[in-house]
Design a protein around this nucleic acid. Structure first.
Lengths: 251, 251
DNA sequence: CAAGCTGAAAGTGTCGACAATCGACGCTTA
DNA sequence: TAAGCGTCGATTGTCGACACTTTCAGCTTG
């Protein structure tokens, strides 16, 4: 689970919270592709597999529902949210909207430290691309954009970004390697970094628009290609889910 | 409870869901000011008062936590989120960001029907302002902006807007009458409506910026004024909460 | 008199159980 | 043979209970 934005003044209490643990496990299973879109998430099965009762599972499912990862159907249970092409458009439309704003704001607030961090993140991305490591490219890509939101300094925007990213990862996890040419990522990220460092709002917006737009079209194309026959993952929930086990702290 | 986006093709099933009912009741109590910021929401007390068990209350509380209305403190319970001046800034920063975008998009997608609906909403607002009815002004104001997001056609943006609005209403409900001069609302809304109808992106952004900016400063000022001594509402949870009762359908 | 300690009370986290409901299978019937 | 209906199993929605934690009032002590 990503660093949950520390509420206000709470000491970021123990993570020995079954609900959050289960939410993390389910999230990981979903974005990792082990739970495919449309697949049912039976609370009893999850509880049995994790060796806990159904109550924490229910609450975790409710949490993930509010994040858009699961979809609740009353009296029928929870299902992994299946993303339609329209969903992808909505997701990217919203993401572009906030990321433009965040990038401009990040440039305004850029400090030597955050600037260095952003550069480091870019380097890490470029290296992953150079090594042709799709998984790490996706991760570094995500972290780069997340860092921009973080530097912008609006915790709500950051939380929103995390939520959008989680939803998208359902798709991305499915697709596996997102880009045919990993090097293209580095190429489209560089101008964004440069624009933020230069601090010209119009240029920032233009480059963010271009960069996110590329990803938008790419993902949209892939989802559209997968969408009609994508019902293959309607698997039954009877089978074992192979969830990650709970941390050994408790039980 | 807002119109839950009809999943895929489901017939918008029964709302006889205790969890959602409780969530609605608590939301109403919070935005209505009966539960003040920082006040504890003891699940046992709520369950007792509503005559149900704690399980649905817990899940509803988690739902509201994800919406930002409540704040969970492990092992200590749920508290009504108290908004600091920084929170207000974050909220409005994000709201401005998406509302700009939504207004431009709404203008692009404006149909005769949606245009008429927007005008109607504006009229309703102007009338409430003319009659000097603060409660209805706040409501009509909200509905006007919500309609813009709705016309923009991105369901996620709309949901986000609803979430932000709910958080803000915690403050607004406290403040009571938001504006000293209700007529000013009508004055600052008119150019927004006109700009959307005209369809000039730059003008739309400019007017939305101005209009939301006014509200931002206004709310910010009020919250800042209330913030230091605002701890008065630290009431105990032992007292009766006077929640709205459950619909008579069940139990 | 203030500070720390101790105990009880209240409240949360989790569990197992039961009833209501949904979906599926098989049976009856035209 | 196909459509309609009833029954059964599985799963959800909700409940009450128990253990542990936190809180707070009263007491002890420096």
């Amino acid at each position: 689970m990503r660093t949950i934005s520390p509420p206000v003044g709470l000491p970021t209490l123990t993570e020995t919270d079954l609900v959050r643990q289960v939410a993390g496990i389910l999230t990981e299973a979903i974005v990792g592709g082990r739970l495919g879109p449309g697949q049912k998430v039976a609370e009893a099965a999850v509880a049995r597999e994790l060796g806990i009762s159904r109550a924490p599972v229910r609450e975790a499912a409710r949490l993930l529902e509010s994040q858009g990862l699961l979809q609740a159907s009353p009296r029928r249970g929870f299902f992994v949210r299946a993303l339609s092409p329209e969903d992808v458009d909505e997701l990217y439309d919203l993401r572009l909207c906030i990321e433009r704003h965040a990038a401009v704001e990040a440039a305004r607030r850029l400090t030597p430290e955050s600037r260095a961090a952003l550069r480091r993140q870019y380097e890490s991305l470029a290296e992953a691309a150079f090594r042709d490591d799709p998984a790490r490219v996706v991760e570094a890509d995500y972290q780069f954009h997340r860092l921009i939101c973080e530097i912008a300094g609006n915790r709500r925007t950051l939380r929103l970004f995390d939520g959008l990213a989680a939803e998208m990862r359902v798709v991305i996890g499915l697709i596996g390697r997102l880009y045919d040419d990993p090097h293209e990522i580095a190429r489209t990220h560089a101008p964004v970094l440069a624009a933020i460092e230069a601090g010209h709002p119009e240029r920032i917006v233009a480059h963010v628009d271009h960069h996110v737009g590329v990803a938008w079209r790419e993902v949209g194309r892939l989802v559209r290609a997968l969408s009609p026959p994508g019902r293959a993952a309607e698997g039954h929930s009877a089978e074992v889910l192979v969830l990650a086990s709970l941390s050994p702290s408790k039980r």
